[in-house]
């Protein structure tokens, strides 16, 4: 595999991102490494090719946002909005992620080895997110589709106003949000969990140690008795 190296102490972020926006015929199958990211914002956003990108350090806000097809690895931590609005591909954060990780993501797989902050997976629309640590409050708020797997604990109001996303939690939950409830783990859900654990490097974790959460579907239509929950 051909490797292309960038160093953000020598190249501008625009040079790096413009290269990463080259035609798929130029990028497909290539490996790109980015040294000294130093917390820069918007690294590797809007990728549309089957390219492997490694960010060798801590990334700033919106790293790998809007990703399609690409496989992005962040060797350090990620700032707010990592992989936000991802459509497909894979983003792997080896450290922790800040707020709104995977927000509104439509597809693809986001793996966070450490903790994720506030609002992880908020309004997710079909992506899969696996968090090796814990997530902050309001995670999966209004999540519409996809799966959020949390190996650690969850903060307050988990899954508030949830639609049809699944949430799997192994640790403690500080509180459930409105209309989020514990569901029996059916075979379909369990298989999804087993596959996601294997894909994200947690194949040794017992799927039976997770609780499945889903929507109670009581907020789908307006009802005056629920006025306080909207």
């Amino acid at each position: 595999m051909e490797t292309v190296k960038f160093d953000l102490e020598k190249h501008t972020l625009r040079e790096v991102n413009q290269y990463l926006h080259s035609d798929a015929s130029v990028l497909d199958g290539k490996a790109v490494t980015i040294d000294n990211p130093n917390g820069s914002h918007n690294i590797a956003v809007g990728l549309k090719a089957d390219v492997n990108v490694t960010i060798q350090g801590h990334a700033g806000y919106y790293a790998a946002g809007m990703n399609q097809l690409a496989n992005v690895v962040i060797e350090g931590s990620a700032g707010t909005g990592v992989a936000e609005n991802m459509m497909s591909g894979r983003v792997h954060v080896k450290g922790f992620a800040s707020n709104a990780a995977g927000a509104t993501a439509n597809g693809g797989l986001l793996i966070i080895d450490g903790d994720a902050g506030l609002r992880c997976g908020i309004s997710m629309k079909g992506a899969n997110i696996v968090v090796g640590g814990s997530v902050g409050s309001f995670s999966a708020f209004m999540a519409q589709a996809g799966n959020l797997v949390i190996l650690g604990d969850a903060g307050e109001a988990l899954g508030d106003s949830l639609y049809e996303a699944r949430i799997f939690v192994r640790g403690n939950i500080q509180s459930l949000g409105s209309d989020c409830e514990v569901k029996p783990m059916d075979d379909t859900a369990k298989q999804i969990l087993v596959d996601l654990l294997a894909e994200s490097g947690h194949g040794d974790v017992d799927p039976d140690s997770f609780t499945l959460l889903g929507s109670a579907r009581k907020l789908y239509n307006f009802h005056v008795d629920n006025a306080g929950d909207y």
Binding site: N38, G39, S40, H41, G57, H58, G60, Y61, G76, S77, G79, G95, F96
Partner: peptide, 17 residues
Amino acid sequence: EFRSLAHLPDIKNAKVF
């Protein structure tokens, strides 16, 4: 944000959280 810490001496060996 980390951007403001990136140029501190020996930051690579600091515990960042």
